[in-house]
Design a protein around this nucleic acid. Structure first.
Lengths: 127, 127
DNA sequence: ACAGAAAACAGGAATGATTACTGTTTTTAA
DNA sequence: TTAAAAACAGTAATCATTCCTGTTTTCTGT
């Protein structure tokens, strides 16, 4: 359904996303790869990120400064966004919410949750 | 610092935001008001929403279908976004997180948190 | 109440992330 | 090997949001 299951560019894009903890934007992924793959197109990065999201291989974490930031770690965890340096950090675990139980008891089907704290990171507040 | 503290349009925009539970977008607010205020400009709605956010009178809840959705209820509570009808619902309370304590102990200053559940709402799943 | 000065505004142009389109290249499967 | 399917490059289009400029409203001191 999704198409063929191999494309060298697709693999490179996923690898780039999966091998960083920076929670990159599409543009960042493109910048990382364009030396290695000179004829890479930004549209291809966007198209593949959309595909990875459909496949559940990648999640959208937050929109920071107008850009969507993504994560290849799809396990349940929260994030911290620094409003000073625009850094996005993993938080080790997301709280288990009583709201989740309540929602499903009332006919709401949860497909994903997103817990984001905004503030000033340690680095920015000490500099 | 923020300027004068009265403008009839500003008041109308805030009232419109505060008197709905729909978690509106800028465009929705504009659509609601343009009959009542024929020469209202969409830019004015955006400018005032930005101001309300700075003032803490309004929070950004989520980006749904490319549009930022806002809320004049700035008390701590979570939201549910239906990916079918794009509705945004209030959840009565946000969980108190042990992560928050841990973050502040490590030099991270939290200015706001955002807890959003995504899924299919009751109405959409029964229709 | 009146007159600048400051802020807010309308209207439209600009920006910038993301998506869509079209012709070409890569991958697949037989 | 080869034709069909999918992916791609490159570029144009879309659309939410922001910016700019000249005008209007609000404020403040008299």
């Amino acid at each position: 359904m999704t198409g063929h299951n191999f494309s060298s560019k697709r693999e490179a894009i996923f690898k780039t996303i999966a091998s960083t903890k920076s929670h990159p934007s599409a543009k960042w992924v493109y910048e990382q790869l364009k030396d290695e793959i000179p004829n890479l197109s930004l549209g291809t990065v966007y198209r593949n990120i959309a595909l990875f999201k459909e496949q559940g291989r990648v999640i959208a974490v937050a929109n920071v400064d107008g850009e969507e930031r993504i994560d290849a770690d799809v396990t349940d965890h929260a994030h911290f966004v620094c409003e000073c340096c625009n850094g996005v950090y993993d938080l080790v675990s997301s709280e288990q919410s009583p709201l989740e139980k309540e929602l499903s008891q009332n006919g709401f089907e949860i497909t994903r949750k997103n817990v984001v704290f905004y503030g000033i990171c340690q680095k920015c507040s000490t500099n």
